[in-house]
Write a protein that binds this DNA or RNA. Structure first.
Length: 504
RNA sequence: GGGGUGUUAGCUCAGCUGGUAGAGCACCGGACUUUUAAUCCGUUGGUCGCGCGUUCGAUCCGCGCACACCCUACCA
């Protein structure tokens, strides 16, 4: 026996043993896992079509249906029982009476049914009717056990609330918690809503490598791996940016990619080592265009997936109906802290002292731009609850963005904040190959000086830019965080099916 | 990485100044042909996260470890 098999035996208990015994009995009786039963109806459709019909009218129609699903509740009352079946769309009640299901062929079927357990997967055929309390119910005349469940489900009323088990055994969470199912259905809807929006605007969906010889497109620590046949180290991508811009060079003017990024950094309620990002690039646009486009995209997603332009996140309203606020980095600092003057925010020594005073460490090599950004993160970021674009990011912290035409210290870049978090980041792309080469060199120097997250020099990317990339706007939207907002989820782990955990 | 809280039956949770454990649901047996968290009666189920220590005696006190959650740091 391997260690793993040994582990799976450890949490065996008497309930599981009893169910294994029942399965053994089923095997002896015949086929224990039949697969010929085909359901033709879904719970949600039945409620939608017949839920409002009067008891008498429904019986007159004599509607025969076939359903399948997991038995979630069971009430045996002697010679008749009620059971609640859950399929992928919802729940439907079954009325199982001995005299309706026992036949010459299956004289003991009702006795068997009484032994079936919560969690078992059943198929049933019968006629729809309404009980005395008005619940739409299937009067069963054929019933079959399709899959025996060996493990007991969590308690029927309180459900599963242990966060750890919800994450580690998402399948159980999905079986018993409707909110969990809703969250992931909404996630899927958000993605199709975004795709629809992008396709409507002539964007082409593309896929670029996840394995990168040089990690690029963001400032982050990468995961490393190794390709055996090529005998070369590779990195899981931290961003698709440099590949997508190569496609713009190639003449695909509007592209987008929705896929995973991997960053070898800390975990938190807002950070998972792999997370989903949409990046999109549009030639002949700039960051102003991107802001309008992103705003409309997020408004559409919020409205179409929640039915409202106002969303409640963790008890506080987010209003997507108004035009999103726009503030420069410096304006945002001034707005949320009255301790500084505009003049002081241009003084590196002053900023250094102010950041220290707020209890944060200051990197000795940080210039004015990154000092301003640090102060912004300390005093303003958490207050940006309503959707707000922050613009005029320092060039020092934006090595891939085009410099402002009027101020060479800042870039044509924005970040979108909602509920105090960064949701999107976009800019007019730097398409001057020589300038980009210079900026990469500065990054390499920073890396050599000990900045682990500084970028590498990507010579092929420079070569691509040397062929000429049209003026382009590019933006990334953090999909998991957007899903968190729309589903009112406090943790990123609530919107990722299988979040990373330490081994059990 | 730092701090806080937690880990008791399959699930949800009690457990007094330290005297080796309880409830509800689930399960098993019984009654019940319109229930719906069905109800009623009777059972079963535990290395109290792991290890060491203090003690006559530890679920409880101390130390260490593991895992989780929250805050914080890096970051999107």
């Amino acid at each position: 026996m391997t260690d793993k098999e040994d582990m799976s035996k450890q949490d065996e208990n008497t309930i599981i043993a009893e169910r294994r015994a029942k399965l053994k009995e089923l095997r002896e009786l015949g086929e224990a896992f039949p697969n010929q039963f085909k359901p033709g109806d879904f719970a949600r459709d039945l409620h939608a079509s017949y839920g409002k019909l009067e008891k008498g009218a429904l019986e007159e129609k004599a509607i025969l249906v076939t359903v399948a699903g997991r038995m979630m509740l069971k009430r045996v009352m002697g010679k008749a029982s009620f059971a609640t079946l859950q399929d992928t769309t919802g729940r439907i009640q079954l009325y199982v009476a001995r005299d309706n299901i026992n036949s010459e062929k299956t004289p003991e079927l009702y006795a068997q049914f009484k032994k079936w357990d919560l969690g078992d997967i059943l198929g049933a055929k019968g006629k729809l009717f309404k009980t005395n309390t008005g619940e739409l119910t299937l009067e069963v005349n054929e019933i079959i056990l399709l899959t025996k469940s060996l493990r007991p489900l969590p308690e029927k009323f309180h459900g599963l609330s242990d966060q750890e088990i919800k994450y580690r055994q998402r399948y159980v969470d999905l079986i018993v918690n409707e909110e969990t199912r809703d969250t992931f259905k909404k996630r899927s809807k958000i993605l199709s809503c975004i795709r629809e929006y992008m396709l409507q605007h002539q964007f082409l969906e593309v896929e670029t490598p996840m394995l990168h010889p040089i990690p690029g497109g963001a400032s982050a620590k990468p995961f490393m791996t190794h390709h055996n046949a090529l005998d070369m180290d590779m990195y899981l991508r931290i961003a698709p940016e440099l590949y997508l811009k190569r496609l713009v060079v190639g003449g695909f003017d509007r592209v987008f990619e929705i896929n995973r990024n991997f960053r070898n950094e800390g975990l938190s309620v807002r950070h998972n080592p792999e997370f989903t990002m949409m990046e999109f690039y549009a030639a002949y646009t700039d960051y102003e265009w991107l802001m309008d486009f992103t705003e409309k995209c997020i408004q559409k997603v919020a409205e179409e997936t929640t039915g409202s332009k106002k969303v409640t996140y963790q008890g506080k309203e987010i209003d997507f109906s108004k035009k999103f606020d726009r503030l420069t980095l410096v304006q945002a600092i001034l707005k949320y802290s009255d301790k500084f003057t505009e003049h002081e925010l241009l003084d590196s020594d002053f900023l250094r002292a102010a950041i220290k005073k707020l209890g944060d460490d200051v990197n000795a090599s940080a210039g004015l731009g990154s000092l301003q950004l640090s102060l912004f993160e300390l005093v303003a970021e958490e207050h940006l609850w309503q959707p707000t674009f922050i613009v005029d990011y320092p060039i020092e912290v934006s090595p891939l963005a085009r410099a402002s035409s009027t101020n060479s210290d800042i870039t044509e870049r924005f970040e979108l904040f909602i509920a105090g978090r960064e949701i999107a980041n976009g800019f007019s792309e730097l398409n001057d190959a020589e300038d980009q080469a210079k900026r990469f060199k500065a990054q390499v120097a920073a890396k050599e000086a000990g900045d682990e997250e500084a970028m590498y020099f990507d010579a092929d990317f420079i070569r691509a830019l040397e062929y000429g990339m049209p003026p382009t706007g590019g933006c990334g939207i953090g999909i998991d965080r957007l899903v968190m907002l729309v589903t009112d989820s406090p943790s990123i782990r609530d919107v990722i099916f299988f979040p990373h955990m330490r081994p059990e």
